[in-house]
Amino acid sequence: MAEALPVMSPEEASLPDKRQVAASFSRAAASYDGVASLQREVGEALLARLPIQPVERWVDLGCGTGYFTRALAARYPKAHGTAIDLAEGMLRYARPLGGAAHFVVGDAERLPLQNDICDLLFTSLAIQWCSDLPAVLAEARRILRPGGLFAFTSLCAGTLHELRDSWQAVDGFVHVNRFRQLKDYQQIGAASGLKCTALETETRVLHFPDIRSLTHELKALGAHNVNSGRPGGLTGRARLRALAEAYERFRQPQGLPASYHVVYGVYQKES
């Protein structure tokens, strides 16, 4: 029988209203893995950055379909794992595939876990959806044991700038998710009480034959725009044609580029 999971009471662990983000990723559960090559590459690069040290308990935060839940289980076969995601649809998909003792609905800004409970908190391409990054790092510090690691990847400003600038030329509305500046990660990390052992960025560029292929992938990932302030209703054909024309100025020999500015961080809770 799996070891009981130490959790807070439902009152303590109540989630903020992030239903739109959760619903978007829940809808994408079945299609996500088919288009998530970048997400896998980035997460694997984060795994490669982890130092070798004992891990008895780990948490995969924003586990999605459980790809890295299973990777962590393979890396730490004797450890106790917990997978957490805001999207119940993702957990329903991941749970039958295994990898963790527990699959739990939870918010990174208010984790449903006790203090000093794990040695590794791993999260890849999830915390960019959190509005309160200081709360995320405070929760990481709270649940980690002394010496434990908080390892994350996220996205920086400039991600999908080609799509953002093309939409700006079409109608001036916000159609692309906003992302933090690198300096925000640096400053918030420095104030978190955690020791930074690694913080670096890289740019990864994907290429698509046409704009429809790009927007289809973003929808399949559940990563299309969840900002407030975007225009309501369906985007008309004329607007999409204008978008395609505006995006053509970025075309490269490989196709239409979509740039992702990725930040990698590894922080440690000191004794």
Rank of each mutant, 00 (worst) to 15 (best):
E3G: 11
A4H: 08
P6I: 13
V7S: 12
A13Y: 00
L15T: 08
K18P: 07
K18I: 03
Q20T: 09
A23E: 14
R27Y: 02
Y32S: 06
Y32E: 08
A36M: 02
S37D: 10
L46A: 04
L46K: 11
A48K: 04
L50N: 03
P51S: 00
I52E: 07
E56Y: 08
L61R: 00
G62Y: 03
C63K: 10
T65S: 12
G66M: 09
R70H: 09
A71W: 08
R75K: 15
R75Y: 12
H80C: 13
I84S: 04
G89T: 12
M90N: 11
L91R: 06
R95V: 11
P96T: 09
A100Y: 09
F103G: 05
F103Y: 14
V104Y: 07
V105P: 03
A108W: 05
R110P: 02
L113W: 04
L113S: 06
C118Y: 09
L120S: 07
L120W: 08
L121Q: 03
L121M: 06
T123W: 00
L125M: 10
W129A: 05
W129V: 06
S131A: 12
V136Q: 01
E139S: 02
E139T: 01
R145S: 04
R145K: 15
T153D: 04
L160I: 02
Q168S: 10
V170C: 06
F173D: 11
V174R: 06
N177G: 00
R178A: 08
R180H: 06
L182Y: 09
K183Y: 15
Y185M: 05
A190H: 06
K195S: 10
A198S: 07
E202Q: 14
T203V: 11
H207M: 01
I211Q: 07
I211R: 09
S213A: 15
L214M: 04
T215N: 00
H216V: 09
K219D: 00
L221R: 01
G222W: 07
H224V: 02
V226D: 05
V226N: 07
L234A: 01
A238V: 13
A246K: 01
Y247S: 01
E248P: 05
F250K: 00
A258S: 00
A258M: 00
H261Q: 13
V262T: 06
G265P: 04
Y267F: 15
